[in-house]
C-alpha cells in the first residue's frame, strides 16, 4: 500500500468537487462548503487508490490536446463504425458471426494507458477485453471478438485496436 501524497489528494479533491458542482448546479455558499468538506474527506481516504503516477500529467498541453483529440475525434469514429457493423449483423439475423478469443500484444506501458485502451476496446461493440497477462515484459490482452478475421498476434491487434492504440500513445507515452 503506498502512502497518501499531497498532489494526489489535490487532484482527487478537484475531480470530486467538480462533479459535485456539476450535479447540484447551485452556487450558494452552503452547498459549496458542504461539497468541499465531503470532497476533501473522500480525497484524503481514497487518493492513494486512484493516483499511482504523476497527479498533474494532464497539465502538459501536448498530452491534454492528445487526449481531447482522442476522445472527440478518434474514438467516436471507431465507435460509430463498430456500432453500424454490429447493427448490420443483428438486423441480418445474427448469422454471419465467427466468435473467438484472440491473444493480442499491447505496446502501451503506463497502467492508465492500458486501462483506457482496455475500456475503449470493451466499449466498442464486437470486442470485449477478457483478461490481461504479462509475459517477458510484453503485455497481452485476451479479446473476445465477434467476427474473427485474422489469426492471433500482431495482425489481429491491428484490426481490433490499431487506431485506438495510436491515439492513446499520444496521451500516455
Amino acid at each position: 500500500m503506498q502512502k497518501t501524497k499531497i498532489p494526489a489528494v489535490v487532484s482527487t479533491f478537484l475531480v470530486c468537487f467538480i462533479f459535485w458542482v456539476l450535479l447540484t448546479w447551485s452556487f450558494t455558499a452552503q452547498e459549496l462548503i458542504a461539497g468541499g468538506v465531503v470532497s476533501l474527506a473522500v480525497a484524503l481516504f481514497s487518493a492513494r487508490f486512484f493516483i499511482h503516477e504523476k497527479a498533474f500529467w494532464f497539465l502538459n498541453p501536448a498530452k491534454l490536446f492528445g487526449g481531447l483529440f482522442y476522445w472527440v475525434c478518434v474514438f467516436p469514429v471507431e465507435l460509430v463504425k463498430a456500432n453500424v457493423n454490429m447493427a448490420k449483423i443483428c438486423f441480418g439475423g445474427c448469422k454471419k458471426i465467427n466468435p473467438g478469443i484472440v491473444k493480442v500484444p499491447v505496446d502501451l506501458k503506463s497502467d492508465y494507458g492500458q486501462a483506457a485502451l482496455a475500456n475503449s476496446i470493451t466499449l466498442t461493440p464486437g470486442t470485449i477485453t477478457m483478461e490481461v497477462t504479462e509475459e517477458e515484459g510484453q503485455t497481452y490482452y485476451y479479446i473476445h471478438w465477434i467476427d474473427v478475421t485474422a489469426p492471433s498476434g500482431k495482425e489481429a491487434g491491428d484490426a481490433i485496436k490499431g487506431t485506438l492504440e495510436k491515439g492513446l500513445r499520444r496521451v500516455w507515452e
Binding site: P99, T122, T124, P125, T127, I128
Partner: peptide
Amino acid sequence: DTFSRMQASTCIPTL
C-alpha cells in the same frame, strides 16, 4: 451464445 449476446448488447449503452 453468452459472449456474442454480450457483444450485441454493447450497442445499447453506446450509440
